[in-house]
Design a protein around this nucleic acid. Structure first.
Lengths: 147, 147
DNA sequence: TTGCTCCTCACGTCACGTGAGGTGGC
DNA sequence: TTGCTCCTCACGTCACGTGAGGTGGC
């Protein structure tokens, strides 16, 4: 009997399937440093991943797909997210001065605002296209109702 | 004095700027048959465009950017749009039987529904990401208000 | 042990970017 | 006539896809 642990190590193919991408893409992202800079394994040995890697890769794939950015821009975004996570951990750790806490929150707000700006512009464009098509669709329905 | 006609012929660089793309992209699309299959000009002569070409290219660039499809898929979409335009003209021309008119409307409806499906799914994903970020942003604001 | 998935090159492809060297038109 | 933009190759690049030939682990 094989115990399927909640955080059983994944092989690259399983990670790829879980994140909706390919093994080639994962290796390429690792090569670029977009994913796991130094896997630390001997030459020829299999890569191994955990649940956190699935989350991270899913997020990266999602951002790339939805924002339509280059891998270079994506890297900047991901690095900013990582910095934000680090600040978040610092924020929740015990000894942080109130001034520092306020500063951390300010940075987080700025970062999120920039991301939201980007997303909103893109959604605005999608909305415009959608309402154009919906209007055309409406006209067809009116014409169909007339007969 | 140079009269600037409303439909003055455009050169490829002007078309590129008007549609928010590059001359290379236009030439590549023409090569693929995505744009103006046969420009019909002698070797080495400059390409010439009109206002209709600006509209068409703008639409193509927009679809590509927003839907994130390959040029092959884009070609299929554009061909479907062209077919729809042809049907539209047939519909508005004088002698069309009522049955044929109903058929044309049905096809138009089907095509628009498919496009809308695609757009809505994509917008749904964008909405999800946006509300995630907005929620995080909200929490930051709450924390900032507390101090 | 047999299958499957993994490994590392390395070349191919898609969608253009970027010169090189030359010619066209306001 | 001078500048600018255009022309056609053709090689470069980004983000992977796709084998080739070989090794690892349930």
């Amino acid at each position: 009997m094989k115990a399927v642990a909640a955080d059983a190590p994944l092989r690259i193919g399983e990670l790829a399937r879980a994140a909706g991408t390919t093994t080639r893409t994962i290796r390429y992202y690792e090569e670029l440093g977009l994913l796991a800079p130094a896997p630390e394994r001997e030459q020829g040995r299999h890569r191994s991943y955990g649940a956190a890697d699935v989350e991270r890769l899913r997020e990266i794939v999602r951002l790339k797909d939805l924002l339509g950015v280059t891998l270079d821009e994506l890297k900047t975004i991901v690095q900013a997210e990582d910095a934000r996570t680090a600040l978040r951990e610092e924020f929740h750790s015990g000894d942080v001065s109130p001034q520092r806490r306020t500063e951390i929150l300010g940075r987080a707000a700025g970062h999120l605002d920039r991301q939201l700006e980007l997303l909103r512009r893109r959604r605005g464009e999608l909305d415009a296209l959608e309402s154009e098509l919906a209007q055309r669709r409406e006209r067809v329905d009116v014409l169909l109702a007339e007969r």
